[in-house]
Amino acid sequence: MIYIKNKTKTSLLSLILLGMIMCGVLFTPALASSNYQSTLVKGTDIFTVSEYNDAVWKTTVNNSTNPSNWFEGETNITGAKSKITMKGWRDTTWEIYDVLTGIFMTEFFSLEEIYPLLALMNNLGYNETTINANYTNNYKISYGVRSVWNFTSSDYPDEQSYIDGIKVFKNPLDFKSMLDDYSNLSAELNEKLFFTPYSFPSLNADEFLWNLALNGLAIAKPQSEYLEDLIDELGCENVTSSGSTLIFERYGETEYTVEILYGNEGTISSFLVKDVDDNIIFRIVSTNSEWIFYITLIVLAVCGVVLVAYIIVKKRKPKI
């Protein structure tokens, strides 16, 4: 029988306990989901406008806009950079009211409009309780919080430009029921809001997905199946997927294509706008500096090993 000293025993026990607690903390969110798993990671991605052709944009996408309409800041300047820090996330369940306020209203109305509109809806009998009572679908999501620095061609300011939320719906099939619920609810509301300046736009599947993609849609793993399920369930007509890339066939001044590539973390990794001849009009690529961090760690580890080896060799020298 191996004799283990009491002290060692206590240390081992503590380590095992600590390990169990850590595993519990780390794996609980992962185990909670069923087929698709959120892969959000805390950290910062840097986005760079690597290409932008203003003339072609104007003749292809929109004569009166530039990419700043899609991504805030100096997106129309090649070399401009933005950074987004994923601060953390929480697994939660949304009801239709959360979807309405957290996705649709934030997209179609400004902050100044949202609060009076909610008050108005409340007066009309559409508050959180009544809406959720009539539309009973639940949606499991990972809701992430991130700090966003708008695109800039100069140094980033110390403070972030804004903080926003990112949503990973655990089940891509939920998008269809979300859109259906919205369509029904918005129709109801538009009737009641007929004499007010507010009106909820009606959305088809393509537009719904396009708006989501531009406003913090993140996807879960396995990514290709997720995107396929999402597109098929929604019944998109001009949206396809290829691996981790979502491809939108859109029409502005003329036809153009938008390709959104999702990275390992499930967030946008690159954003590409092309004309029908495959000429690149606009491209954003993301980089992160994790490799520098890991190289630093490797260098430190090597130094540590060398140091320990040196100490051992030195101690082994015969004592006179």
Binding site: V25, L26, L40, K42, K87, G88, R90, E159, I163
Partner: peptide, 15 residues
């Protein structure tokens, strides 16, 4: 370690 807990939010900025 603390940052491995998803719901423990990272500070807004580096500073």
């Amino acid at each position: 370690i603390l940052q491995l807990i998803p719901s423990s939010l990272l500070a807004d900025t580096q500073t």
